[in-house]
Design a protein around this nucleic acid. Sequence first.
DNA 1: AACTTTTTTTAGGATAGACTAAAAATTAAT
DNA 2: ATTAATTTTTAGTCTATCCTAAAAAAAGTT
Lengths: 217, 217
Amino acid sequence: MTPNKEDFIKAIFELGGQTQVVTNKDLVRTLSISAASVTEMNTRLLKEGLITHLPYQGVILTEKGLTIANQLIRKHRIWEVFLAEKLGYDWNEVHSDADLLEHASSDLLIERLNIFLGEPTFDPHGGVIPNKDGSIPEIHSTPLIECTKGVQFKIKEVDDQEEFLEYLLYKKVHLGKEYTLVDIEPYDGPLTLKSTSGEETIIGHKAAFKILVELID
Amino acid sequence: MTPNKEDFIKAIFELGGQTQVVTNKDLVRTLSISAASVTEMNTRLLKEGLITHLPYQGVILTEKGLTIANQLIRKHRIWEVFLAEKLGYDWNEVHSDADLLEHASSDLLIERLNIFLGEPTFDPHGGVIPNKDGSIPEIHSTPLIECTKGVQFKIKEVDDQEEFLEYLLYKKVHLGKEYTLVDIEPYDGPLTLKSTSGEETIIGHKAAFKILVELID
DNA sequence: AACTTTTTTTAGGATAGACTAAAAATTAAT
DNA sequence: ATTAATTTTTAGTCTATCCTAAAAAAAGTT
């Protein structure tokens, strides 16, 4: 496995290659390489059994390819948590450095880093961190930032930084309380929550990354 | 700059290429590549002005090459500190992972990591961490582990972990006290110190990494 | 000084990855 | 349904990095 192949597999995954056929054109666009290079890489990955190739249609990840993709995403997201939480990166700065680091990380390193970070479940964007074996953990809670307007939820878990807990106290947001997400503004705007008792609370965009909720159907 | 070139420059430096001519043979041995590949890489680095080449003799780093070597060593050693102090690597485990990470680190990342680590001066092996610009900081203290049998020194600085401070208290080692290094055993063995008042103290090998001393001439 | 051994260089290839240009196949449009 | 446009594949190059084998130069030996 070279960094190039890793990026290619990851790109297929991110374009939905777990379930759908991903076209060469899509890969040309996301990886910024020529169509000829895509065909070439396809034949290489096909030979290694990581993808299924349907000529003139595109590719899908095999079971083996999917496992590798998830393990890469695991590395990427664990680094993102490190960059954001420990090095003070803003959550939109983490991506490019995590992209470099994920290709230079031994399994030992990732496992130790994971423990150092307290075995996080989500990355700073709210994405789930896959397990070591490439499987996806069963999640009963979702970062609030991932929710859409109108859903009802219950507060499940919050970031335990002192300052943040004080903020939540001030906003009267606490574990177990139920809300409806009345509004979520675009461009990193605020979120409006309405509790079952009817009070409305407006919270900041970044706070919504640090609040995990369970959806109520 | 590619990882390969970086490794090559670093190898020249580590073989003494700052002051002496490093032969192709030495590079063949340390990098485990063929003699032909060494010649080839030499011509590449020569073209980039990173080395001076004396045909049939070997290479020396130019000013430019030296700066790059030191910046690489900076990255390497900062990662070593991280691996040892934060991820609990043993000091002899850090090298290989640091070797991977040093090629995947943006300048921003290294500067933030450096701050996160408290701007350390030495790596876990006692090596000095070069400055951002590739210069070497003026050091008045040396890790005790770097000292040779017979030298006299004064305790300048010690690691400030609670547990370690208690150990030093118990051993009666404190700042400002002067000693002679009576013995230092091979194979990570203990060190024997003799204070000016004549008492001898035996301390563990690992403790000697955490004690900085100033040599007395 | 001539011969042998070691080291370095040159010459010629291999592979991974990327490219452009042109051919082939598919999809869209009249 | 035939033509036009798009997409994919093939063919031929290019560069970086590595290799082996042979030639050239330097160093060591008798």
